[in-house]
Measured scan of single mutants.
Amino acid sequence: MSRVPSPPPPAEMSSGPVAESWCYTQIKVVKFSYMWTINNFSFCREEMGEVIKSSTFSSGANDKLKWCLRVNPKGLDEESKDYLSLYLLLVSCPKSEVRAKFKFSILNAKGEETKAMESQRAYRFVQGKDWGFKKFIRRDFLLDEANGLLPDDKLTLFCEVSVVQDSVNISGQNTMNMVKVPECRLADELGGLWENSRFTDCCLCVAGQEFQAHKAILAARSPVFSAMFEHEMEESKKNRVEINDVEPEVFKEMMCFIYTGKAPNLDKMADDLLAAADKYALERLKVMCEDALCSNLSVENAAEILILADLHSADQLKTQAVDFINYHASDVLETSGWKSMVVSHPHLVAEAYRSLASAQCPFLGPPRKRLKQS
C-alpha cells in the first residue's frame, strides 16, 4: 500500500486566492494483479454453464480479502454459449462490502496482453458476489490457432484489481511565511564533478583513453575500487588504474551511474553493462540491467540471455529466462542460440529441462510459493 502523499503547497495549487485553511483528501486504492494459466484448455468440458475456478489470491499475505477468477468455457447461458465468460469473485471478506475495479486480458504466445476488457467503474462486491463479462471473447476466435491465444493449448488470463480503501483527510492552515525547501541536487552536482573533471585525484585508463576521477567517490560506490585504493596496490601508489576489459562507451555509462545513480543509455548496452556491474560489484546497476534484459526477452535471444545471466550470477534474470524458455519451449528449441547452448553450456540445458519437467508435473513435489530491489 502506498504512503499517503503530503498535500501540495497551496501557493502551487492555483494562481488564484489562497485560503486560510485547507483539506486534502486521499482515497486510498490498493492495486494488484494475478495470472492464471489453464493447461490443455481444449479438453475443458463443453457443457453450457460449466465452471472452472482459479485458486484464491489477494494483494498480499496480510490481506484478508480473498478473490478468485471464474471461467465458463462455453458461456454462462444460452445467450453467451458462443463466448467464454469471465468473472472476478470475492471469496471471503471481513467487511460487509468492498468496491473494486478490474481489468481482464489474455496473454498471447509472446506474453503480450490482448483482448483487454475492464470495468468502467468500481463495482460493489459482497462475499460470494462476482462481476465480469458474460461475453468476454468469442470461442471461435479464441480457438483459432492463427490468433495465437492458446500457445501449446494453454489459456493464460491476466487480471488487474484495484480495491478502494478508506479515504484519509489531511488538513492544515496557511501561513504568510511559507518556506520552500529546494530539491536535493546531489546527483546532478556529483555528475558535474565527473563531467568537468574537477578536483580529480586519479586516472582511469580504458582502451587508450584516459578519464579523470575521484578516488573517494569510486571507493564509496564500488567495493572493488575501494579494495584497489585501500591496500598497497599499484593503483593506490600511482593513482592510476588500467581497465582492459570494458569498452570506453560502456565504461562511461558505468561511471555515470557511479556518480549519479542513473544510467540513461542502459537499454542500448544492458548486456555489456551487466558484465561491468558484476565485475565492479555495483549491485543496483546489475539489477537494473537484469530488468532491462528481462523486458527484451524473446524467442530468438532467450538462450543467449540465459548464458549471460549464468555467467554473471544474475539470479533474477536467470529465473526469468528459464521461465520464458519453459513457456515458449517449442519455439526456443528451434533457435540457433539454443542449439549452440546445447554444445557450449549443457548444464544450462539440463537446468531448463528440470524446470520444465517440474512445471508440467506438479505432483512430483509440493507447490512452490512464489514470493528486491534495493
Rank of each mutant, 00 (worst) to 15 (best):
S344V: 11
C205T: 15
H328V: 11
L364P: 12
T200M: 10
D272A: 01
A216K: 00
E78W: 10
R139Y: 07
G365I: 14
M1N: 00
G337F: 10
D144P: 02
E334L: 06
M178Q: 06
K110T: 03
Y24N: 11
L364I: 14
D166N: 12
Q165W: 09
E78A: 04
P151S: 06
K129T: 11
E78R: 13
M176L: 05
P73A: 06
V71F: 09
V163H: 06
M288V: 02
C203L: 15
K53T: 09
G75L: 11
V179Y: 08
V168T: 05
A329S: 08
F136W: 06
D201A: 00
E112C: 11
K74H: 14
C159T: 04
S96C: 15
S171K: 06
L142V: 14
S167T: 10
Q360M: 13
A187T: 09
I217E: 00
T25I: 02
V343H: 11
D201I: 01
L142N: 12
Q212M: 15
S92F: 07
L333F: 05
D130G: 01
A321E: 01
S2A: 10
S6D: 10
L311N: 13
C93Y: 06
G111L: 10
G132S: 00
I258G: 09
Y123E: 00
P264K: 04
I106H: 14
D271H: 01
K129M: 11
K110A: 13
K103S: 15
M233G: 14
P73T: 05
L333C: 13
E46H: 10
Y353N: 00
V168W: 03
M341C: 09
L149N: 09
Y353G: 00
P94E: 11
N62M: 11
F324P: 00
L143M: 05
Q120G: 02
K95V: 06
E20A: 03
T37C: 03
L356Y: 02
Q360H: 09
T335L: 01
K115V: 12
H345P: 00
K53A: 05
E183W: 06
G111M: 07
Q127Y: 12
V164K: 02
L186W: 05
S358F: 06
L364A: 11
Q173L: 02
G261Y: 12
A19I: 04
I52L: 09
E160W: 05
N177C: 02
V332A: 04
A146K: 07
G128A: 15
D166G: 13
I258N: 01
Y83P: 00
V168N: 09
R124F: 09
A292Q: 15
C93R: 10
K268N: 01
T114H: 05
Q26T: 10
K110R: 07
W22Q: 01
S54W: 00
T156Y: 04
